[in-house]
Amino acid sequence: MMDLRTQFCECFVMPHDHDHPHSHLPSDPALRVRALETLLTDKGLVDPAALDAIIDLYQNKIGPQNGAQVVAKMWCDVNFHRQMIEDPMPRLQEMGLYGRQGEHMVFVENTDEVHNMVVCTLCSCYPWPLLGIPPGWYKSDAYRARAVREPRAVLSEFGVTLPEGKKVRVWDSTAEVRYLVVPQRPAGTQGFSEDDLAALVTRDSMIGTGLAQAPSTLESGA
């Protein structure tokens, strides 16, 4: 496992035109975090190995591929689909897609009539077990304010144009409830395996700022 702490001294390397006799000084916030970790470790409140494990998990292991598997299974399995809409937690626990920030999931499904979109106006609440760590734009003031105020304008900036008359419903995540959008299954995917379908389910399509990809995108290797 990569030890990020030892990288602290190497990752702020800047081009310079003179020799530094000493290590490069990390930024002010990086030093404050260093101080926090040292103090909390000394007090026995955190364990550096546990911190590394948390970072490794979110950096390398958990991501939108988890949510994509669930969506693909919902498209293929009517029974599973019903369970996920009615009460997803038992099945998610079985699948190991349960835990921090995913304790109370609600799946909201796109239809011909409604397009769903998720935001957190408070901070950046997001279903970590299914999507990993949110992208920068999800955490930005611009998205958090505008997703509610002018969702169609935001969608068009993401390249999503909805048919006239299709409703947009915006869901505001909280520390208690996290939403995941179930995009519509693309046309021309009859007979696709769950894995093939999962490859069409993008992160943005599960936030609602995108649609599932058409199968042609996959064939062209994009």
Binding site: P29, I54, I55, Q59
Partner: peptide, 13 residues
């Protein structure tokens, strides 16, 4: 997921 190591550290703490 994290663009700087300290982002990851403060998140993990």
């Amino acid at each position: 997921a994290f663009s700087e190591p300290w982002h990851a550290q403060v998140f993990a703490i």
